[in-house]
């Protein structure tokens, strides 16, 4: 680009801007009148806007504008409105028992919708979006429950959690038999065979026989003589096909050795009683009960 003298174009009779790009010069046509009008209208509008609405930042504050408009306040009042709208739906949950909610088609539909949304935001991280769980996180869709699967059991677990530190939390403690040297590695090995046998799988007979007395002494108080577990203590059933920490010998051995136990937070402090109810109904309904 180079600067040239402004000159008048011979063909159109219009003055050029005096700029030249590789021999191409630009006519200095006037701005369209409509464009000018729009421009000035925008200028006038902008001045009006400064006066009417919050516009200029100051050191500690900002110009408030004559109309007193505030997005912050609008959001706050919209949230209050939202609470009112939700309150209307939640009132039904408040006064009904868990059983009544599940029996009533409309309350059930409301609880399922609310429950699904809350579950997705808070529970799905561990239990999965569909509630099918993962290793170490119980499957909530089947008929196997560590702490009981009735509506009231589920609601209690939700409210107080498991090993959550909350005073009423559900607590069970699988001892770390190996790590704490309560059993020798060989005994843990034998006990693994015993547990495999409990679930109906082929196991090393002599090892099973060796462990029989040890099981009665160490394990039966929680898991039961027949190994069917006890929901009151949160002791898993060892005879079914469901294994929270894995079903192979290595996983079972590891569990006897380390005695792992997961933590479920107590949601009572975070959710309203109505939300806990909706969540309990959602989980109960999806467990096919």
């Amino acid at each position: 680009m180079s600067e040239h003298e402004r000159e008048t174009d011979a063909i159109s009779g219009v003055e050029t801007t005096g700029h030249e790009w590789d021999g191409i010069r630009e006519l200095d046509n006037p701005l369209p009148r409509w464009w000018l009008w729009v421009f000035w209208a925008c200028v006038v509008f902008a001045i009006g806007y400064w006066v009417a609405f919050p516009a200029w930042p100051g050191v500690n504050s900002y110009t408030q504008g004559l109309l007193g408009s505030s997005d912050r306040r609008d959001v706050a009042s919209a949230l209050v409105e939202l609470d009112k709208v939700r309150g209307a739906g939640a009132a039904g949950l408040k006064n009904a028992s868990l059983q009544q909610i599940e029996q009533d088609p409309e309350l059930q539909a409301y609880a399922l919708t609310l429950g699904q949304s809350v579950f997705g935001d808070n529970c799905a991280t561990c239990h999965g979006a569909g509630g099918a769980g993962a290793k170490g996180y119980p499957n909530l869709r089947d008929d196997i429950w560590l702490w009981g699967g009735t509506l009231d059991d589920i609601a209690f677990t939700l409210k107080h959690g498991i090993r959550s530190g909350e005073p009423e939390a559900r607590i069970s403690m699988m001892p770390a038999f190996g790590r704490d040297k309560m059993l020798t590695p060989v005994q843990v090995q034998d006990m693994t065979e015993y547990v495999v046998a409990l679930s109906g799988r082929p196991a090393d007979r002599p090892a099973v026989d060796r462990s029989r007395q040890l099981y009665a002494d160490q394990c039966a108080s929680c898991h039961g003589v027949d190994g069917k577990g006890d929901q009151a203590q949160g002791a898993p059933n060892l005879t079914d096909g469901e294994w929270l920490y894995g079903s192979d010998r290595g996983a079972i051995n590891g569990q006897i050795h380390n005695g792992r136990g997961g933590v479920m937070p107590a949601w009572g402090g975070r959710f309203s009683p109505e939300t806990i109810k909706a969540l309990a109904v959602y989980i109960h309904a999806n467990s096919g009960q």
């Binding site: 999965g128 569909g130 869709r141 089947d142 008929d143 059933n237 096909g241």
Partner: peptide, 14 residues
């Protein structure tokens, strides 16, 4: 679709 099926305690599927 999530879960596609659930195996129950007695081996039946839901």
């Amino acid at each position: 679709r999530n879960p596609t099926f659930v195996r129950l305690q007695d081996g039946s599927v839901r």
